[in-house]
Amino acid sequence: MSKTVFIDGAVGTTGLEIAERLSGRAEFTILSLDEARRKDDAARKEALNAADFVILCLPDDAARAAVAMIDNPQVRVIDASSAHRVADGWTFGFPELIGAELVARATRVSNPGCYPTGFLALVAPLVRAGLLPADWPYTVNAVSGYSGGGKALIERFETDGDIAFRAYGLTLDHKHLPEMQIHAGLVHAPVFAPSVVPAHRGMVVEVPLPLAAIEGAADVAALRAALTEFYAGSPIVTVHEGPESELLLRRSGAPTDRLELYVFGSPEGTQARLIALLDNLGKGASGAAVQSLNLMAGLPETTGLRL
Score class of each variant (00 low, 15 high):
residue 167 A to F: 09
residue 227 L to Q: 04
residue 158 E to H: 02
residue 119 F to D: 09
residue 19 A to D: 12
residue 20 E to W: 08
residue 165 F to S: 10
residue 115 Y to V: 07
residue 81 S to P: 04
residue 281 L to H: 00
residue 180 M to Y: 10
residue 222 A to F: 11
residue 40 D to K: 02
residue 59 P to T: 15
residue 183 H to Y: 08
residue 28 F to E: 04
residue 177 L to G: 05
residue 269 G to H: 12
residue 5 V to F: 05
residue 61 D to F: 02
residue 240 H to C: 13
residue 148 G to L: 04
residue 133 P to R: 08
residue 212 A to L: 11
residue 108 R to N: 14
residue 31 L to Y: 03
residue 221 A to I: 13
residue 269 G to T: 14
residue 139 T to D: 15
residue 125 P to N: 09
residue 169 G to M: 03
residue 295 L to T: 06
residue 171 T to L: 12
residue 217 A to S: 14
residue 146 Y to A: 02
residue 284 G to F: 06
residue 239 V to R: 00
residue 270 T to Y: 03
residue 13 T to K: 01
residue 274 L to V: 08
residue 94 F to N: 08
residue 61 D to K: 13
residue 137 P to L: 01
residue 167 A to S: 13
residue 162 D to G: 00
residue 99 G to C: 04
residue 244 E to I: 11
residue 6 F to M: 08
residue 153 L to R: 07
residue 114 C to H: 07
residue 97 L to K: 06
residue 36 A to Q: 15
residue 121 A to P: 00
residue 224 R to N: 09
residue 130 G to D: 14
residue 200 H to W: 04
residue 230 F to L: 08
residue 129 A to M: 10
residue 29 T to D: 11
residue 251 R to Y: 00
residue 198 P to I: 09
residue 253 G to L: 11
residue 146 Y to E: 01
residue 234 S to Q: 11
residue 128 R to H: 14
residue 195 S to F: 12
residue 244 E to Y: 11
residue 185 G to H: 10
residue 112 P to W: 03
residue 122 L to V: 07
residue 56 L to M: 04
residue 114 C to I: 01
residue 300 P to V: 14
residue 124 A to R: 07
residue 303 T to R: 14
residue 117 T to V: 11
residue 101 E to S: 10
residue 9 G to T: 00
residue 100 A to H: 03
residue 61 D to H: 04
residue 201 R to A: 11
residue 229 E to P: 05
residue 248 L to R: 07
residue 114 C to S: 15
residue 134 A to D: 10
residue 295 L to M: 10
residue 236 I to V: 15
residue 51 A to I: 05
residue 95 P to A: 05
residue 97 L to S: 07
residue 136 W to Y: 13
residue 259 L to Y: 03
residue 198 P to Q: 10
residue 218 A to R: 04
residue 75 V to L: 05
residue 104 A to L: 14
residue 226 A to K: 01
residue 130 G to N: 12
residue 21 R to K: 14
residue 264 F to M: 10
residue 125 P to W: 02
residue 123 V to P: 02
residue 233 G to N: 13
residue 253 G to C: 05
residue 169 G to P: 10
residue 4 T to N: 09
residue 161 G to R: 08
residue 12 G to I: 04
residue 273 R to K: 15
residue 19 A to P: 00
residue 277 L to R: 06
residue 291 Q to T: 07
residue 105 R to E: 13
residue 241 E to I: 06
residue 169 G to I: 02
residue 83 A to I: 05
residue 230 F to I: 07
residue 284 G to H: 06
residue 75 V to Y: 08
residue 109 V to H: 03
